[in-house]
């Protein structure tokens, strides 16, 4: 691993996420064990691992929601330990479980999140119309979110999470349970966001989706045991699919609590 990156302003500019020896312990249990990696501007970075491997804990630290026990992290130019409020303001976040307020209308959700993230007042209305047009949702502006089909909701939630044009967006299993067509439309939206320069940090249990990432990391027992492009990982592990790579790696887990 590189060591000098903290002193290099170029790296700090080019990398939207830089993590060095990041560790989180809960009592005697080490949930995240000394992980180091960088994610570049506009990169689609897949963050994989078995249940209980430490993904959620790592992600919560990167979002400024949890203080690391040791190690460093810089996200969107801010220190996750000392500048966590700035981190929160500079990122987008979306999860499968909670993303939008179901009893608010489509436009009200957009309005709410735009306000929270400090989008200038005069920009919100025109940007809302633009977004709804892009999604083909013009007719749904006044619809309650709970009456939208799940796939639509997830597409809307993603658009809302990048409405304030964050440097990086964290997606926690964004496509779970979504139908195959919408799942693919969702990934085309991710491609577009990445083309605009937004870094995408994503977890998924669909191994075919790992293939869409520029690079993929796989966590086992709190450590990052593999990190490379899907093509290189398949070569390295002599596997034909990411599913096979994942299974070969996860088998090494000492944690029997799967």
């Amino acid at each position: 691993m590189k060591t000098a990156l903290w002193n290099s302003p170029t790296d700090r500019y080019m990398n939207v996420i830089t993590v060095e020896n990041l560790t989180k312990k809960f009592g005697s249990f080490t949930a995240v064990d000394n992980i180091s990696f960088e994610v570049g501007k506009g990169e689609i970075f897949g963050f994989l691992g078995a249940n209980g491997a430490g993904k959620t804990t790592a992600m919560r630290m990167l979002c400024g929601l949890l203080k690391p026990t040791s190690g460093k992290g810089i996200v969107a130019g801010y220190d996750i330990r000392s500048e966590s409020e700035n981190v929160k303001a500079s990122i987008g976040y979306m999860s499968q479980k909670f993303a939008l307020y179901e009893d608010l209308k489509v436009w009200e959700n957009i309005r709410l999140y735009a306000g929270i993230y400090g989008v200038p007042e005069k920009d919100i209305a025109p940007k809302t119309d633009e977004l709804l047009k892009e999604l083909g949702f013009e007719g749904e502006k006044e619809t309650l979110v709970k009456s939208l089909p799940l796939g639509w909701r997830q597409k809307l939630a993603f658009s809302v999470s990048i409405f304030h044009e964050p440097k990086v967006v964290f997606l926690d299993e964004p496509t779970g349970g979504v139908d195959p067509v919408t799942r693919r439309q969702f990934w085309e939206m991710i491609y577009k966001a990445s083309d605009k320069g937004i870094t995408v940090f994503v977890t998924t249990h669909y191994m075919d989706e790992a293939e869409y990432c520029n690079r993929v990391s796989i966590m086992v027992d709190g450590r990052i045991d593999a990190l490379d492009s899907p093509a290189n990982l398949k070569k390295e592990f002599n596997a034909t699919s990411m599913d096979e790579v994942f299974r070969k790696l996860a088998r090494k887990s000492k944690n029997n609590e799967l």
Partner: peptide, 11 residues
């Protein structure tokens, strides 16, 4: 198998 990882799914 919803929400569980590929290894547990296989098991």
């Amino acid at each position: 198998t919803t929400g569980i990882d590929p290894v547990s799914r296989k098991e």
